[in-house]
Nucleic acid binder design. Structure first.
Ligand code: MN
Ligand code: MN
Ligand code: MN
Ligand code: MN
Lengths: 223, 223
DNA sequence: ATCAATAATTAGACATGTCTAAATATCTTT
DNA sequence: AAAGATATTTAGACATGTCTAATTATTGAT
């Protein structure tokens, strides 16, 4: 049983992991293909290789699920990715919208203790620049009690921006434009039934948050 | 003309660059094969691809030489590699013998401005942990006037350790064992004609430096 | 100048990861 | 339950980078 995993293998595991966070049950071929912008045929090919390495459980025509070892690899990658993102923002001064692609590469650097040393250097941060939790060396992490702005039971009162569901530059630039960053406090005024857009105030200034944003923004209520 | 260069292509360019530093004229197929631990046949294959991309000038049966664009790519890689080595030693606390392999991976991360930001974060260092010069953003660097200990005209008086010719762990561990680090001052006592080993003192303590070490250690004389 | 040793190239193969097009399985609707 | 729509897999191909074995070129010694 070899220990080396190619960059492609790693990216597949990470994709499956992330998709499983947002959905119960098996992850389907087409979902993975969409996520990684490849063909379903390529995904089937790769899935077989992952199953042969015992990194996923594969039910043909149904989908896959990470095994214990597969989950471990994915978690380590997520940890590395998010720590590098913190490094890029905190130490190198990058904007939060510019770090994902670089971390996408840095996460694959293999070394016994690089990730742990990086974590120590950064002061063992618990969240990345997009509000996503950083697993510790044992793979444990705690999700802050956050919910998508679009799924709040009552659109009323103060909430705090806790994270992003998507990390594309299109999205972060949109947020920059609206003046929303991690930690921003929104004073919710109500929801427009017509298009589900949300009325809010930031520091007293009125703001209209489109549904496309609300469904990708995690917030926590402030009691 | 595509801009993307694979990791393999990059490693070949870097290898050719380094070999050209220690030797005049064309770099031969076999030399590259030895350096990268591959077969001469593979090197010939790759050389043709490099030549097709105008990264080397190739004379069949004779050897290769980097072109201007090839030299630029190689220099940027060297710059990135050495900056990462500084980061790993200065910020993450690695030993100088442990950073080469990790930097070998980090150097390939592609981004417009990552290298420049890293350089700024590190305070624009001029030398890496092994004493090798770090090219600036324009590819310029200055070699300190150093010479291999084995090639000193007179083995006598004070010299300062300025760098290593090889960076293998076998070598750095050997140096650690002898108590030699970058900047160590050696008080040279003479050379043993029998095996070219060198007698020296470090801070008053006697030390015998084998020829195998002397031929891989750069020093500068202290007037 | 010729021959043997050395160096380099070519031929043919393989592994990995990807693709398109065709075939097959599953799901959804009537 | 059958048909059509959708999802998945298979077949066959290609690009990249590597290898061994065979062939060819160059070099060095007599
Ligand atoms: Mn990646
Ligand atoms: Mn992130
Ligand atoms: Mn490398
Ligand atoms: Mn170095």
């Amino acid at each position: 049983m070899s220990k080396y995993l190619s960059r492609s293998v790693q990216d597949y595991l990470k994709a499956i992991y992330s998709m499983a966070q947002h959905k119960a049950g098996l992850i389907q071929t087409t979902e993975i293909a969409d996520r990684l912008t490849t063909s379903p045929a390529s995904v089937t090919d790769m899935i077989k290789k992952l199953a042969a390495k015992d990194l996923v459980d594969y039910t043909p025509y149904k989908g896959v699920k990470l095994t214990k070892p597969g989950l471990k690899v994915a978690t380590e990658l997520i940890r590395s990715h998010r720590l590098w993102e913190v490094f890029l923002v905190e130490k190198l001064g990058y904007d939060w919208g510019d770090v994902h692609e670089i971390a996408e590469q840095l996460e694959h650097v293999v070394s016994d203790d690089l990730t742990d040393r990086l974590a120590a250097f950064l002061g063992h941060p618990s969240y990345d620049p997009h509000g996503d939790p950083i697993p510790d060396a044992q793979g444990r992490y705690r999700l802050s009690n956050r919910v998508l702005l679009s799924q709040l039971p009552r659109v009323d009162g103060l909430v705090k921006v806790q994270g992003l569901k998507t990390h594309t530059q299109d999205f972060t630039q949109y947020l920059d434009q609206l003046g929303i960053v991690l930690g921003t406090q929104l004073d919710l005024q109500g929801i427009n039934a017509f298009d589900k857009s949300i009325r809010a105030q930031i520091a007293g200034t009125d703001l209209l948050i489109p549904a496309s944003i609300a469904s990708n923004l995690y917030v926590s209520t402030i009691q």
